[in-house]
Design a protein around this nucleic acid. Sequence first.
DNA 1: ATTAGGG
DNA 2: CCCTAAT
Length: 631
Amino acid sequence: MEIVVSLEASEAKVEDSVTQETGSGPISLKHISDPDPVVYKLVRVDGEGRLVPATDDEVLVVEDLLKDEKPQHFGADSGDPTECIKTEGHPMEKIHFLSSEEKILAGSLRSENLQADAEDTSAQFDAGVDLGEKNVHPEETVRHLASPFDTNNINQSLNVVGCSESLGGSIEHGSSNSDVATSWKPDFSKLKGEICLDDLTVKELQETFRATFGRETSVKDKQWLKRRISMGLTNSCDFSTMTFVIKDNEVVKKGKKENRKSSAVHKDFAVGVVNETSGGPLDGIHEPKESNPDFDDKNAQNPVLEHDSVREDPGSEQRAAKRVRKPTKRYIEEISEVESRNTSGRLVPMVKSSEHGQPYSKDFIRPLQNVQSIGRPMVTRQDSLGGSGVKVPYVSRVRRGRPRENFMPLMKLQHNGIGLATRMVKRALGEPGPPPEDETQNEVPKLSLSPGWIQQPVIAASEKGNQYLERKEVVLGKNVELKRMDSFEDSSDDNMGNVPAPSGGMRRKHHRPWSLTEVVKLVEGVARYGAGRWSEIKRLAFASYSYRTSVDLKDKWRNLLRASFSQLPAEKGMQNVRKHASIPIPAPILLRVRELAQMQAQVPPTLGSSKFAGHSGDSDRSVHEARSGYL
DNA sequence: ATTAGGG
DNA sequence: CCCTAAT
């Protein structure tokens, strides 16, 4: 299978891009055809650095992901002034770069992941290439290849790439930048002497960030900033260090809370890369070989080491002790429900707002019996329509605007078959139509091409569809086809809440299975904006999915974390017994999740360090086998 | 309003 | 998912 990248014919012949071998098997793009329409073929790089044709599975994975990623999200917002600029760059430059600059490993294009900095137009590319691959930072590459002397094209495009991570704003006008971008170095003029990231304020951190990366940031998250800066200064993924000594415009010392691993087995990674590629355009040019020995020392490109060092640093980033919470006084809720509504569910509202007789959503009523006795204060709530206030127990927060909690179900039941009406009401209620990319429709055909593990989803997916169909039928009777697929999407019901499943139990209230693409989006979101910045992710990456609140995202991430870390254990006895009608989450994704978790120090304390002990040879295999999460 | 956590 | 507490 080949992916044709529409490229300008201007590209002369180029050679296979070399991928830095990280010991595992990153998937990269290999250029196999010179003629105009440049054709790339997916390959993986084995331990020895040989290029092995990718299997169909791999190709498919990548392809799917490529398809899913819409550039729209990137650089959308986030206040970073450099982003809009970035979007102007042509993705092609990057491709060009990829193919012509052998020094760069396709792998290093890995979607800069680590976090915020929503940048680069190439993300669509990276998303796919990236999966299941080790960390290699673009910064690295740039730093070692960039040279003040070099002004040829290659470098130009190179800069474009590099910009994805650190060069940020220097890119803007492709013409005038060659010097700026090429020779960028941290401006430590403001960072003299010793700095301890831990002691800095957000503002100071932002300044430091600027000094370090040469661009502004709007991120206010201290943790994030510190990590980011640390990684930047240290030029590695290692953010365990929080104190640095800057001298002569360079980081000369890092306040390391030494932990073993001292003797680096890796080392001089970057140098090696450079040498390896001698003969290239940069030949003869004096590599600005990081005049700082420390840099080489700490280049944590070796994943194993990376995890390693990140992990045990007791003193470093005391991951903020879990937020403590007062024991929750949960009050009985289900009981009242039983009482207040008869069999038809919410059709018989308990409380009505004066004018419209619309039932309050259950959440609004929530009140349980004997509120008084429980001691909950009563407040008078004015409904939005100015009706007479109703006495309701005070609840700290009234859930609102949850699109799925509108009164649609009611409509559907009464005028079943009138999809249009429903739709209109929906609009009125502010629910945007189903996302352009409706998984329920897309996933199936997409996946159906693939053999291997991805096949399973196919089946599962169709089952999923059937499930919905069934449900729908139960509720609506025959008029199912009228509403096409999108009616699935808005099974916003509360109906379901009371619809007894054929099996017996009552179906859960609101439950919308997470689609694969949603998961991917979430993961990517976390990669870009960082875990925890859920509202951001929701706004930017989930704009089209009106359901899925930020909380949902958070929950899902939590689950993904669990899944990804839950040992790849269950592998054995559960081959067929998968009664779970759920789709297994593709291992590569879980892998990514784990990676991100690593980087963001979200590793569950329990599975501390043991995990990554001997994680080199089998990484390839684990990609195909580890599947412990479900959508 | 958002986020973290418990259920 | 839902819910509360914390920020």
